[in-house]
């Protein structure tokens, strides 16, 4: 069957096979920033924004996104500029191997879009579905706080 999806602001059409997951479709179509870690929704490495909310793309059938909007990590940069979250991840050392990073950034993007001033507990909750084995989450939480601070500073200025 054919589906139409807006991915990272570009309207696309794909032929999909029945049972194909959104994760499989995205990776097949070159969105390699979407990572495969478990295929059971436990690790969050495959997270994307579906109509603005973070979902594990391994648990979403590709057929279900027909007519919807998807944003992957590749879509977070705007006009060649990194998003504040991406900058903050780099500045705080929140990236080690980088395999969980795309999903973590997606979860944090969802959080900040809906809650521009989250508490530490809310930050931890937002990324609690994204497993990371390298960092201990210390610097990822710090990165999200830094992004919040910078985005607010930007508004104030």
């Amino acid at each position: 069957m054919k589906i139409a999806v807006k991915i990272n602001d570009v309207q696309r059409e794909f032929s999909i096979t029945p049972g194909e997951t959104l994760l499989e479709l995205l990776r097949r179509e070159g969105y390699k920033g979407v990572k495969k870690g478990c295929e059971t929704g436990d690790c969050g490495a495959c997270a994307v924004l579906l109509d603005g909310r973070a979902v594990n793309s391994c648990l979403v059938l590709a057929a279900k996104v027909d007519g919807h909007t998807v944003v992957t990590v590749e879509g977070l940069e705007k006009n060649g500029e990194l998003a504040p979250l991406q900058e903050a991840f780099l500045d705080t050392g929140a990236v080690q191997c980088g395999y969980c990073t795309p999903g973590m950034l997606i979860a944090a993007t969802d959080l900040l879009a809906h809650n521009p001033d989250p508490s530490e507990e809310e930050i931890k909750e937002a990324i609690s579905g994204n497993l990371c084995r390298c960092t201990g989450y210390v610097k990822q939480v710090e990165a999200i706080k830094l992004a919040v601070q910078r985005m607010r500073g930007g508004e104030d200025a």
Partner: peptide, 23 residues
């Protein structure tokens, strides 16, 4: 100095840098 990682930008932008990212 706490320099940014030299591979950091490619990792936060999801560039195809891992083993299975090459078709």
């Amino acid at each position: 100095h706490g320099a940014r990682k030299v591979d950091g930008v490619s990792l936060v932008t999801g560039r195809p840098k891992f083993t299975a990212d090459m078709d």
